[in-house]
Amino acid sequence: MMIHQAPPPPSPRVYALSRPFWDGCRAGELWLQRCAEPACGRAIHYPRVCCPYCQSDKLSWIRASGLGRIISHTTIRRTHHDGFNPLAPYVFAAIELAEGPLFYARLVDADLEARLIDHQVRIRFDPGPQDPPVPVFEVLPY
């Protein structure tokens, strides 16, 4: 008898440019690029070859706080990939990290019906089927 098994959710590909970010996730830490130009100094995500604000190629890596604020959110009821079906419905959010950049992530243990804009969130590195592990966020008490 054939048993239909859902595929795992897609895993990110790791390139030299993004390796510090994904190595951080493997270690349970959030690492971001930061522009080393003193006049700029902005934090950057996703990893790039230059600062998108001032085009400087002097970028360093910093360990980030893992804290952020929800800009907007949606409850995904029809997934884009069968690998997410076991998780649905779930909340997906656009998050402004405390250091500045936009970060997309699933929220875990979130109220599917609640208004969550401006709520504070904290990163979590839960074990899952993806390699490297993809970070999720939890909503902090308001």
Partner: peptide
């Protein structure tokens, strides 16, 4: 899912819900 590099590595594996998810975020905002 494979539309471009940023979607493929930093949105799809995160569970973005495809175009529907992205525009749901815009709609709520």
């Amino acid at each position: 899912d494979h539309f471009n590099g940023s979607v493929r590595e930093y949105m799809s594996p995160q569970g973005f819900g495809g175009a529907n998810g992205m525009f749901a975020l815009h709609t709520r905002l």
